[in-house]
């Protein structure tokens, strides 16, 4: 199926940090979220990346199932001795993190530049 191979994240190396930028505006729908999750997990499980910044600049919607994938990713990164930072989260999306108290679990930064500082 074409959609399974569709790239859901753009990956860029900045120094020793991997910046992963979501391509889609909406991280909704189980199938879609499964693909996003697998592409994110590959960064850690297969490629062994340890410093990851997730850039939410394009993201306008995300559901609780997407939050679940982020939590799993965070656990994987930490288990590998790495660190995960989130950046450029819109106010509506930040509210979703705040309601669920996940703003306490994740390191969140205003923009990519701030997320890269001292990483």
């Amino acid at each position: 199926m074409a959609s399974t191979s569709h790239r859901k994240i753009d990956v860029e190396e900045i120094g020793d940090v991997t910046v992963a930028r979501f391509v889609d505006r909406k991280i909704l729908d189980e199938t879609n979220i499964q693909i996003v999750g697998n592409q994110l997990f590959t960064l850690v499980d297969d490629e062994g990346r340890r410093k990851i910044v997730l850039d939410f600049n394009n993201v306008e919607y995300l559901s609780s199932a997407a939050l679940g994938k982020l939590i799993t990713l965070d656990k994987k990164v930490k288990a590998n001795g790495g660190k995960l930072r989130l950046c450029s989260v819109r106010p509506e999306i930040y509210e979703v993190f705040a309601i669920t108290r996940l703003n306490k679990l994740f390191d969140m930064y205003d923009d990519q530049e701030k997320a890269l500082e001292g990483f």
């Binding site: 609780s64 679940g68 965070d74 309601i99 669920t100 108290r101």
Partner: peptide, 21 residues
């Protein structure tokens, strides 16, 4: 309650809370 300390790292269980919010 997904916001309880012991549930914060569980990957599911937040949907109803978001609907209510």
């Amino acid at each position: 309650d997904p916001t309880a300390e012991e549930n914060l790292e569980k990957p599911s269980g937040r949907g109803i809370m978001l609907m209510r919010a």
